[in-house]
Design a protein around this nucleic acid. Structure first.
Lengths: 334, 334
DNA sequence: CCACAATGTGTAACCGGTTACACATTGGCA
DNA sequence: TGCCAATGTGTAACCGGTTACACATTGTGG
């Protein structure tokens, strides 16, 4: 690969001039510029990102830390972020943390030694102090799907509580008289969804705290939670699952129990991952604007990288109810 | 962050000695070694991967080029590779190519300028010459889920043909008398699966070339293909789909047609992605050892990176039939 | 006891960029 | 016309490692 010195030699100028042309910095006579560009083309020259990084500039690399790419929610996040990154000539390092603080720390250590420009993190385990520490060391961080209260951390999440209300209201409108909630682990987004459910159902005559069961955001969790729910309350006719995975688990459990969806029980999930449309019946869900969240996260990370002073707080994006078969009319065939 | 010179100063030795300690190269007196290690610890020193890379060593970074992380097959590949990479202190750059040769080239260009150590590629579009060119430039490449005939390219795939035979035989054993095949796009693995199907079914009395329909490896493709198949052959009682996504599409189509699975029609997929266990009924499938493929790919990529001379050819891993409900006894409830 | 290998350590060039600073040259305005 | 700002370009140090080479020092066999 050609180096900047090869180019400078061929163009008959100094390396500084070539660097100026590359970075559009300082003064360069138009004539010289052309000569340099010609030389670059002739040599098929591509600046070394490594050398640039060492010399104190961007490495054009960011890291995405997620719990597990096998969880179908995260490929959507990853794709959105990678798309944006790629458009901006950035490259994304994928890190699966398994929500293990130790793995997380190890990764962050390595990422720092690689001088990455910034981190987008979606983790249930990482805590504010750790992120603030990173920021202090000069590493821009943006969180997604995770909020941090009043700490000055930029994060993009959706309006969980309002979405949950929409889901619960929808089930009520469809005639459900006993609606259960399968909640997620005790992270903020799961709690907010639970609160939204309580906002709508908490004051109903049929409400009972036993209608809320934890499902760990997994299919298995949703399955087990549903079996447990029906043991306690055989007359449940609506389930609002804290995410789509648990909704799918609920679907399987109901099939097992011999209940028909949506005739006997209606289901609403949350997230609108692709899986929601893959199962039969397709699942009604609250769509998170995942792609938009990824886009915004990346966009703002770049701003932070470029040293722009922007407000570091929690940004909430609107959600949308997507009605499908799982909450449809009982008469519907498919 | 402390630098190697800080460490050398504190330990009272030269940078060369520190470097020797870090790399376990050359001679270093045990005493000196300890002093250096102590200094490193005291300063919380971590060598800069960037500087190392510039100085001609590994960047401890590899790239994974896949068509699309949203296709549920690829998170499994990505996870396997990332796990291995992480164990070996490597970091993975994720690239979605969308099977677009232009995007692919752009990525490869960037990756080279980042001096990554190697590439693992899973792409239907990339062709042998491009990979050979990369190799010539000194970039180690390993392919997964893709073979390249006689070209000296190391690739890991599964035994598609034998797997397809297993699937077809299984359907026959389960009593199917008219088995259709939904094939994938014209890439080698899809073709091999089709051949395996023909090996088993081609000589049956009921066989008809019209029983093979292309489904593009997508859910929608599988759905459409199934509708088309049943229009032509309403008496089909078994479907071997070239991958699980198309099997899920077939499942949806059959539900739509009012056919019961497995009573009226039995389905077998291929890959054993997590989705196969998420739908109802769970799908019988031919399991690719995806994790093992990822592990091997990464392991061998490292060997190539380390300059080991290893045979550059297609490696086939064994598959396994995983019997689930979609091909189960008609009497089965779930 | 000496020659020579094995061991131990430091100096400085190098990887390929960026950039502070110095040094022209040009041009506009008092 | 003279002076100063704006423009244009080059030199060389620097980023933080690696490593060839030079130069001790120690150990060993004849």
């Amino acid at each position: 690969m050609a180096t900047i010195r090869d180019v400078s030699r061929l163009a008959g100028v100094s390396v500084a001039t070539v660097s100026r042309v590359i970075n559009r910095s300082g003064y360069v006579k138009e004539e010289t510029r052309e000569a340099v560009l010609a030389a670059m083309r002739a040599l098929d020259y591509e600046p070394s990102v490594i050398a640039r990084g060492l010399a104190g500039k961007n490495t054009k690399t960011i890291a995405l830390i997620i719990p597990d790419i096998l969880n179908p929610f995260f490929p959507e996040v990853a794709r959105a972020i990678e798309d944006q990154a790629s458009k901006l000539n950035y490259t994304v390092i994928l890190c699966n943390s398994d929500n293990d603080p130790e793995k997380e720390s190890k990764y962050i250590q390595i990422l720092k030694s690689k001088k990455i420009d910034g981190i987008i993190i979606a983790s249930y385990t990482i805590e504010a102090p750790q992120i603030l520490e990173l920021q202090r060391e000069g590493v821009p961080v943006v969180a997604v799907d995770r909020a941090f209260g009043s700490d000055p951390i930029l994060s993009f999440i959706c309006n969980n509580r309002e979405g949950a209300r929409m889901a619960a209201r929808h089930l009520m409108e469809r005639g459900c008289r006993k609606i259960a909630h399968i909640s997620g682990p005790s992270v903020m987004s799961a709690k907010e969804r639970c609160l939204g459910y309580e906002d709508v159902c908490g004051s109903e005559g049929w409400f009972d705290p036993g209608l809320i069961v934890e499902g760990n955001f997994t299919i298995e969790g949703g399955y087990a939670a549903t079996l447990e729910l029906f043991e306690r309350h055989p007359d449940i006719d609506g389930i609002f699952a804290g995410n789509d995975l648990m909704a799918v688990g609920a679907l399987k459990a109901l099939y097992q129990l011999g209940k028909s969806v949506p005739r006997d029980v209606k289901i609403v999930g949350f997230d609108d991952i692709a899986l929601a449309r893959m199962v039969v019946p397709e699942i009604t869900t609250v769509r998170q604007p995942v792609y938009e969240i990824g886009r915004q996260a990346m966009k703002h990370l770049i701003k932070l990288i470029n040293g722009e002073k922007i407000g570091q707080k929690t940004m909430r994006l609107d959600v949308e109810l997507v009605v499908r078969r799982s909450s449809g009319e009982a008469a519907d065939r498919v």
